[in-house]
Simulated scan of single mutants.
Amino acid sequence: MRTVRQVLESKNPEVQAVGPDAPVIEALRLMAEHGIGSVLVLDGENRLVGIVSERDYARKVVLTGRTSQQTRVRDIMVDTVTTIGPDDTVAHCMQLMTDGRFRHLPVLEDGRIVGIVSIGDLVKAVIEDQQVELDQLQRYIAS
Results as ranks from 00 to 15, higher is better:
1 M>L: 08
2 R>G: 08
3 T>S: 13
3 T>I: 03
5 R>E: 10
5 R>W: 00
5 R>L: 04
7 V>H: 05
8 L>P: 02
8 L>S: 01
9 E>D: 11
10 S>Y: 00
10 S>C: 02
11 K>M: 14
12 N>V: 08
12 N>P: 04
12 N>I: 06
13 P>L: 10
14 E>D: 09
14 E>T: 13
16 Q>A: 12
16 Q>N: 11
19 G>V: 12
20 P>Q: 04
20 P>S: 06
21 D>F: 03
23 P>A: 07
24 V>W: 03
24 V>L: 07
25 I>E: 15
26 E>M: 07
27 A>S: 12
27 A>C: 10
28 L>Q: 13
29 R>C: 11
31 M>V: 06
34 H>K: 12
37 G>A: 04
37 G>R: 03
39 V>C: 11
39 V>H: 09
42 L>N: 04
45 E>I: 07
46 N>A: 15
46 N>Y: 13
47 R>T: 07
48 L>H: 03
53 S>D: 08
54 E>P: 09
54 E>V: 05
56 D>V: 03
57 Y>R: 10
57 Y>S: 02
58 A>C: 07
59 R>K: 13
59 R>N: 12
59 R>L: 15
61 V>I: 08
64 T>A: 07
66 R>A: 15
67 T>P: 09
68 S>C: 12
70 Q>F: 03
71 T>M: 10
71 T>R: 07
72 R>F: 06
73 V>Q: 14
73 V>R: 14
75 D>S: 12
75 D>W: 03
75 D>I: 00
77 M>Q: 11
80 T>G: 00
81 V>F: 11
82 T>H: 10
82 T>V: 15
83 T>K: 08
84 I>N: 01
85 G>K: 02
85 G>R: 02
85 G>W: 01
88 D>N: 10
89 T>G: 09
89 T>R: 00
90 V>R: 02
90 V>P: 02
93 C>R: 03
95 Q>Y: 11
95 Q>E: 15
97 M>F: 11
99 D>C: 00
99 D>L: 10
99 D>E: 14
104 H>K: 01
105 L>D: 03
106 P>A: 04
111 G>R: 14
112 R>P: 04
113 I>H: 05
113 I>F: 06
113 I>M: 11
114 V>F: 00
116 I>C: 08
117 V>M: 05
117 V>S: 05
117 V>W: 03
118 S>R: 02
121 D>N: 13
122 L>N: 06
122 L>C: 09
126 V>N: 02
127 I>K: 05
128 E>I: 10
129 D>E: 15
129 D>G: 06
129 D>A: 10
130 Q>T: 14
130 Q>F: 12
133 E>F: 11
133 E>Y: 11
134 L>G: 07
135 D>W: 11
135 D>L: 14
135 D>E: 15
138 Q>A: 09
138 Q>F: 00
138 Q>Y: 02
139 R>Y: 04
139 R>N: 12
140 Y>V: 04
141 I>D: 03
141 I>V: 15
142 A>G: 02
142 A>M: 07
